[in-house]
Design a protein around this nucleic acid. Structure first.
Lengths: 206, 206
DNA sequence: AATTGTGAACCTCTTCACAGCT
DNA sequence: AGCTGTGAAGAGGTTCACAATT
């Protein structure tokens, strides 16, 4: 497949959300201009993004909302269910387990890992807690495809290395540190500090 | 000031973290190549980013770690303290209040807002909880400069509008929706769904 | 008449490459 | 000799503008 930029994927997610909202309001058709306005971008951008994947609209008419939503859902793989492992039962890890959005989006947390032996062998919200050294075994057993990394920065790289050795290639990293991975592995960072610092810069320089 | 890209600011945050780590290890000097390697980018990028703000290195020698860290800290406004309001005492809001990183970084949550009248008038971790309709009053009283938005998507825009009417110009938005703001206002989005969908796309298309 | 799909133009960000310091 | 700082070149992403289609 032709190389698709991260920006395009990010925007497809937004279009998907936009379409979901329109469908809820029983709107059957939408133009690239409308999608663009809702997301504060240009209509050419919307059309260009979609053009990488096919032709989904009707000239003169626009796009059928539910058809386009289905197509984008397919592109993003949203109809699939993913098996996810979560590492780290600290503040962030605990908050994430509470967060129902995961399941809604087809991300099923099948296993939790922690270093603290007191936490292991138990269940949290029905999800079994394992020790870090069981990662390899559990990845195979539960067929984990994605790992959520909610461990301290110092051990984030080594934790990801263990998962990579077991064949996991997709990570959502909450540790505030840059992770080194080969080209066939994707790490998405969720790092509040960086966003806060951007706000700080903005306020300091206006 | 010359326009600085968001990517540059994001990277400055990373350099800041890198330098902090080096200083902890008692390393006095660092080259752009070393900073680049640690963050998986090119050394030219590091030097170019810094060049927007001044000349901090010594040709032939590199950068003094603590001097450069101080300079970047100043650029990002990290030595300052910010007064922050948090809206929404749901799952995310509660998790954020537990999150000590805020205070460490100079972001002081001075007020919490919620629609639920049962929650108002009380304290959470020593922070007073107000009703949404008190935003204007409390923004002035506590001199809030940043608002963290942890409310449902449907009311995110209207919540931000209220803060903007009171003069707040910087937002950290956790609601999965695009917010419309004028040019002199900055909204940073912290949206896990989009990152998850990027992982889903990646796994679906390899 | 309205709106898509897309090549070309444009703009922005990244990398190269080297002069200039230390 | 080694490394920075930066103009110029290159790459990548966005917007323009219009032919094609309904």
């Amino acid at each position: 497949m032709k190389k698709i930029s991260h920006s395009t994927i990010r925007r497809l997610s937004k279009y998907f959300r936009t379409l979901t909202q329109q469908i809820e309001q029983d709107i059957k058709t939408i133009s690239s201009v409308e999608i663009a306005n809702i997301n504060s971008i240009t209509s050419a951008q919307v059309r260009k993004d979609l053009s990488f994947f096919g032709t989904f609209g009707k000239r003169g008419l626009g796009y059928n909302t539910s058809e386009l939503r289905d197509q984008i859902g397919k592109i993003l793989g949203l109809e699939k269910q993913w098996s996810v492992g979560l590492v780290g039962l600290g503040n962030i890890g605990k908050a994430l387990i509470q967060y129902n959005e995961f399941k809604t989006q087809g991300f099923n947390i099948k296993a939790i890992f922690d270093v603290d032996l007191n936490k292991c062998g138990k269940d949290v919200r029905g999800i079994p807690v394992y020790n870090i050294n069981e990662i390899g075994k559990v990845v195979s057993k539960e067929k984990l495809e994605i790992a959520i990394i909610a461990v301290p920065a110092k051990v984030a790289q080594s934790t990801i290395d263990i998962f990579m050795a077991s064949g996991v290639k997709a990570f959502l990293n909450f540790a505030p540190t840059t992770i080194k991975v080969p080209d066939d592995v994707l790490v998405k960072n969720q790092n509040m500090s960086i966003e806060l610092e951007a706000l700080s810069f903005f306020l300091s320089n206006k």
